[in-house]
Nucleic acid binder design. Structure first.
Lengths: 139, 139
DNA sequence: ATCCTACATTGGACATTGTCTAAGTCACGA
DNA sequence: TCGTGACTTAGACAATGTCCAATGTAGGAT
């Protein structure tokens, strides 16, 4: 996602310090942060950045398809920068961390026509839950 | 789920008017309500029921495994009384309503061992998204 | 049938997450 | 370098959910 900023500029984005920092935070680790975690990490580098800007920027990245919004537990949404690779999520039921995983076959095809009830089905998300090795050891 | 109250009594539940009403609301329709929708419908029959009680009761039903908590959009969680039948969800991206659907095969088997990263995977939820016939007409 | 008491309910304060607005600021094309 | 329209900001507000102390009550004990 190193050329993300270039892609965004190509789409008419103004390149501000705040947007750069938010993009860098997402680009860094491979965990999926909540909006407030992104804000905290962004504020490390740019202390005066506001919560509203982080929310705005994340929302824009999502509508542009650069980032995926994940809500696994009804608490804070998490933001997944790995939007260009088809993948699903593996969530630890104890500590909440999320891993990206890849499944076999196309999950969409598992839903037969009569089970679609007239919906125009366009998307499917698969979420596996279990205990991660770390929490398993600690128990 | 007509014998739900019996099962709960067997587990040491006190049978109060409030709990009965919450259970009846869930038992009724086949849509999945949010906590506040459950509260509104419960209040139709028992006007003095409080939000806290509805939240408490729903939480208890979830821990007892009688009801499933569904959070599809990071907004309000919805409560699915159909906990004893294996099923997945079809969500309208526009109006948020949820339908239960049944898929072919076991989605768990689509996650190969090397993609499990040491997790003890115990559960999988599949959520299909699309536009429901009603929203499709209205557009 | 009545009483006791542990469990349940209530209302309201509080917490968390997210949205909106009006005013000020700044990126970038001309 | 300037002007303008897009961007950012702080803080109020909204939606959802949690917690607590005071009060009420279901159901076993008598």
């Amino acid at each position: 996602m190193s050329d993300l900023l270039e892609r965004l500029r190509g789409r008419g984005w103004r390149l501000t310090a705040q947007r750069r920092v938010v993009a860098e935070v997402l680009d860094g680790d491979h965990v999926h942060y909540t909006a407030d975690e992104v804000h905290a990490r962004a504020a490390d580098r740019l202390p005066e950045i506001s919560r509203a800007t982080v929310y705005n920027t994340l929302g824009e990245l999502v509508s542009l398809g650069e980032v995926i919004e994940v809500s696994t537990d009804g608490r804070a949404k998490r933001y997944d920068p790995n939007a260009h690779h088809d993948h699903q999520h593996l969530v630890c039921s104890r500590c909440g961390t999320i891993r990206d995983v890849h499944v076999q076959g196309d999950p969409l095809s598992a839903l037969p026509e009569p089970e679609r009830y007239g919906f125009q089905v366009s998307e499917v998300t698969v979420t596996y839950r279990g205990i991660c090795p770390h929490c398993s050891d600690a128990s």
